[in-house]
Simulated scan of single mutants.
Amino acid sequence: MKKWVRSISREPITYFLILGSVLYFLHAWLNPEDKTNSRVINVDRDSLVQFIQFRTQSFDDKASKKLDSLSPDGLANIINQYIREEALYRQAMEYGLSQNDYVIKRRMVQKMEFLAEGTTTPSTPFTNIELQAFYEEHLEDYKLPPTVTFTHVFFSEEHHGNVIDQLAQKTLEMLNKNRVRFDQAPNYGDRFPFRLNYVRRTQQEIASHFGEAMAQTVFKLLPHKKVWQGPISSEFGKHLVLLTRVEAARSPPLRDVRDQLVKELERLRELDSKQKTIDELIDGFEIKSSPEFQGRF
Rank of each mutant, 00 (worst) to 15 (best):
Q184H: 01
F192Q: 00
F126D: 03
A116Q: 00
I164G: 05
Q110K: 14
E137Y: 09
I83F: 00
F194W: 12
R179Y: 08
P146D: 10
Q81K: 06
S123F: 09
T119A: 12
E86H: 03
I104Y: 11
Q169Y: 14
D141Q: 12
E86N: 07
M93N: 02
A168V: 07
T119S: 15
R179K: 14
R200A: 10
I83K: 04
E140I: 04
N128M: 05
T127H: 05
I164N: 11
R84C: 01
T120Y: 07
E158I: 10
Q184M: 05
E117Q: 13
Y135A: 04
P145C: 12
V103K: 14
Y135D: 02
E117I: 05
H160F: 07
N100S: 08
L167S: 04
R84L: 03
L196R: 14
K105F: 13
V153C: 11
I164E: 07
Y89P: 00
H152P: 04
Q203A: 10
F114Y: 13
F150D: 06
V163A: 14
L131G: 08
Y142A: 05
H138R: 14
L88D: 06
H160L: 08
Y95M: 09
L115E: 10
D101V: 03
Y198E: 02
Q203D: 07
Y95E: 05
E205G: 07
P146A: 10
A133M: 06
H152T: 03
